[in-house]
Each structure stands twice: as structure tokens, then as C-alpha cells.
């Protein structure tokens, strides 16, 4: 409860204009304290930011491989599709705290647990988009590829995956942005990252730490979103009209 009141107080301070000097106190306001904190602990913040990035990159890389393979498999075995997609969906509905706590007995405390949890969370968007991306390809395109004598493997790698790629990329982007946020909570099981700042800030009632952690997470999320949506647009442009270039 006191946590909630604290958070309320930060915001009331920030938004009532008294941003540099706390009301009735002779210590500096929130923003100037945050700036001071960043200046003082920039090494730590930078390390945690990189750690957070690393956690996300490792998790999403593994998740992409696993999910695309899963998505391709269920595009061939439609009987499995509903089951696999439902399981992935259930994964997403498990609260992250519960999921992490549940993982600890199996993977211990630390980076691995965080990665495993993040992979499980990112399955659904990628598996689902891979599946629909492949299913939405015009049957005529696939049939003419098969009819001309392409092997199933060639059809998959030359036709199906390239055509589904923009949709798969959209899934990867959704998953990445989502697990950047969940990644902060993974600090709870010792996976490191900016979550550590947030958790420590809360337990020490040290507002600047919380703010730096939260803003750092947002910056990472926005950066991923920017880079991946750029990639998505590039891929979607393939096969579209390119008259401007000619």
C-alpha cells in the first residue's frame, strides 16, 4: 500500500510543477535528483542496459528459430495447429511473476530462467504469424511451384518462407517489444537487466532508480520497434510495385 502512495506522490510532484524542489522539504526535486543519479551511476546504468539488451536478443533469437519451425510444422499438419496455438496462447495468459517463480525449481536463479520465460512468452505472436503467413499464400502460387517440379523443401525455402516473411517479421516485432517489458520483471529471478534498478528502487524508496529503469526499458522497446518496423517495411516492399525506381 505504501508503495502505491509513493508512486502517487512522485507523479503529483512531477505534474504540479514543483519538479526541482520537493514540497515542504529542503532536498532537490525528482528530476534534478534523477539527473544527478544518472551522472553518478552512469556505469552501472549502462551495464544494466546492455545486460537487458543481451537478455532480449538471446531470448528472441532462440524464440524465432523455435517458433518459425513450430509454425512451419503446423502449417503442414493442420490437425496440430489448433492445439499448438492454444498452448501458446495459454503461455501468454500466465502472469509473468507466476511464470518466473514456476521456472526457478527447474532452471535455478539467473539468466537462463529469464531467457526460458521470455521465449515462452514470445512463442505465440511468431508461431501464429508464421502459420497464417504461410496459409495466406495463394494456393495457385504453391500449386504451380509443385507442378513445375520443385521439391517440398525448395517450395518451403524459395516460395513459402520468403512470401510469409513480412508477416513473420511483424510477429517478431510484436514479440520483441512485448518481452522487453517482461524482461524487466525477469530481474526478480536474477536474470539481470534494468529490472534490477526498478526492484531496488522500489525496495529502497529510491525514486530516481525506478525512473531510470523504466525509461531505459521504454527506450529499448522503442529502439527495437523502430529497427524491426524498418526491416518489416523493407521486406514488404519486395514484390510490390517499384515503379519509382525505374
Amino acid at each position: 500500500m505504501s508503495q502505491g502512495i509513493n508512486i502517487y506522490l512522485y507523479f503529483s510532484k512531477v505534474f504540479t510543477g514543483d519538479m526541482f524542489m520537493a514540497v515542504g522539504q529542503d532536498r532537490p526535486g525528482l528530476i534534478s535528483r534523477t539527473v544527478t543519479y544518472i551522472g553518478r551511476r552512469s556505469d552501472l546504468i549502462w551495464d544494466l542496459l546492455l545486460e537487458h539488451l543481451w537478455l532480449i536478443i538471446v531470448s528472441i533469437s532462440i524464440a524465432v528459430v523455435v517458433s518459425v519451425i513450430l509454425g512451419v510444422i503446423i502449417s503442414y499438419k493442420s490437425s496440430l495447429a489448433a492445439t499448438v496455438l492454444t498452448i501458446c496462447q495459454i503461455m501468454m495468459t500466465i502472469p509473468s511473476m507466476a511464470m518466473l517463480a514456476f521456472m526457478v525449481p527447474f532452471f535455478g536463479i539467473g539468466f537462463t530462467t529469464g531467457v526460458v520465460a521470455l521465449i515462452l512468452y514470445s512463442l505465440l505472436p511468431i508461431v501464429r504469424n508464421t502459420y497464417t503467413g504461410i496459409k495466406e499464400i495463394s494456393p495457385a502460387v504453391v500449386e504451380s511451384a509443385v507442378g513445375m517440379g520443385m521439391t517440398e523443401w525448395r517450395v518451403l525455402t524459395k516460395i513459402k518462407i520468403p512470401l510469409a516473411r513480412p508477416v513473420i517479421m511483424a510477429g517478431i516485432r510484436t514479440a520483441t517489444v512485448m518481452i522487453v517489458g517482461i524482461g524487466a520483471i525477469a530481474a526478480y529471478v536474477g536474470a539481470g537487466g534494468l529490472g534490477e534498478l526498478i526492484f531496488q528502487g522500489i525496495s529502497r524508496s529510491h525514486e530516481p532508480m525506478i525512473i531510470v529503469g523504466a525509461i531505459g526499458v521504454s527506450i529499448i522497446a522503442l529502439a527495437f520497434d523502430f529497427v524491426l518496423s524498418w526491416g518489416e517495411r523493407r521486406l514488404a516492399a519486395v514484390g510490390k510495385v517499384r515503379e519509382a525506381k525505374q
Binding site: 495463394s138 495457385a140 500449386e143 504451380s144 511451384a145 517440379g149 512470401l163
Partner: peptide
């Protein structure tokens, strides 16, 4: 068998992500 049989279907089924040259070069 299929590599030695030309195949054209109703909707043509050209590969939208490949250029015309790449399409014709399929077989």
C-alpha cells in the same frame, strides 16, 4: 516427371516476390 512437363494453371501462379526473369528461370 514434373520437371519435364510444362505447367500453366488458371490463376497463372507467378511468384510475386520474384522478378519476371526469376520466374521464367524456375525450372
Amino acid at each position: 516427371l514434373r520437371l519435364d512437363i510444362g505447367y500453366v494453371i488458371q490463376e497463372i501462379g507467378l511468384f510475386p516476390h520474384m522478378t519476371i526473369e526469376e520466374n521464367v528461370a524456375t525450372v
